[in-house]
């Protein structure tokens, strides 16, 4: 299980600024028509990128300076809207692959989807986020180091504290985020719970 453990995550960061970036913007609905997740990375933020391009601006995803990013930086309520797991799937498959996200807050389903994919979403306060984003914009090649155990991120010579609930934190540290195997281990308890529910037993 060792390869499943998430203790330290490091790499350059890509800031994606804006509050309430919903999953339709992370991966537009037309790309959901697929039976595998492969190739979704290329279409991450596609419509936002196009709209900026038409205005003569560049979305960070299209900025070669961030091409090596392993960590994404976000603002408030990131990943709101539809429950589609395609959104974290597209983020973790973009470029060299995003391994963690730091943001001011995350939508609940998006956060949960990321946990089950082994991608920690850590929360920072507004001021920290400002610093991290400006730092990444001015030093795009600088490597950020996230320490899951201590719940910190190091950027340049500064260390900032982050928030991550104990449940997911433990799951990352122990490599227990691959939920299915763990759930299946309780097969007898599952049957016992079902046995007590009248509707599971034909209302007998």
């Amino acid at each position: 299980m060792n390869d499943l453990k998430r203790t330290k995550i490091s790499g350059p960061a890509i800031p994606v600024r804006g509050n309430d970036i919903d999953t339709d913007r992370i991966i537009p609905a037309r790309f959901l028509k697929c039976v595998t997740f492969d190739g979704l990375g290329d279409h991450a933020f596609e419509d936002d990128r196009l709209q900026l391009k038409q205005k003569g601006q560049v979305h960070p995803i299209d900025n070669p300076a961030f091409a090596n990013a392993k960590i994404m930086l976000a603002n408030k309520n990131f990943g709101c809207g539809s429950s589609r797991e395609h959104a974290p799937q597209s983020i973790m498959r973009w470029g060299r692959g995003i391994d963690a996200i730091i943001g001011e807050s995350f939508a609940e389903i998006f956060f949960g989807n990321c946990v089950t994919l082994g991608v920690p979403c850590l929360v920072a306060d507004e001021a920290t986020m400002q610093h991290l984003m400006s730092h990444a914009e001015t030093h795009p090649n600088d490597v950020l180091v996230i320490d899951i155990e201590r719940k910190t991120v190091k950027a340049g010579d500064q260390t900032y504290s982050l928030t991550l609930a104990d449940g997911p934190r433990k799951a990352f540290l122990e490599g227990a985020w691959d939920s299915t195997a763990e759930l299946l281990a309780a097969k007898d308890q599952i049957a016992a719970t079902a046995a007590k529910l009248p509707y599971f037993n034909g209302w007998k």
Binding site: E85, P88, I109, N113, T116, T180, L183, K187, I190
Partner: peptide, 16 residues
Amino acid sequence: GIGTSQVRDVLATQTM
């Protein structure tokens, strides 16, 4: 609502 990994969990274990 749940994500695809949880769909898998529920298929395999009827729990999540």
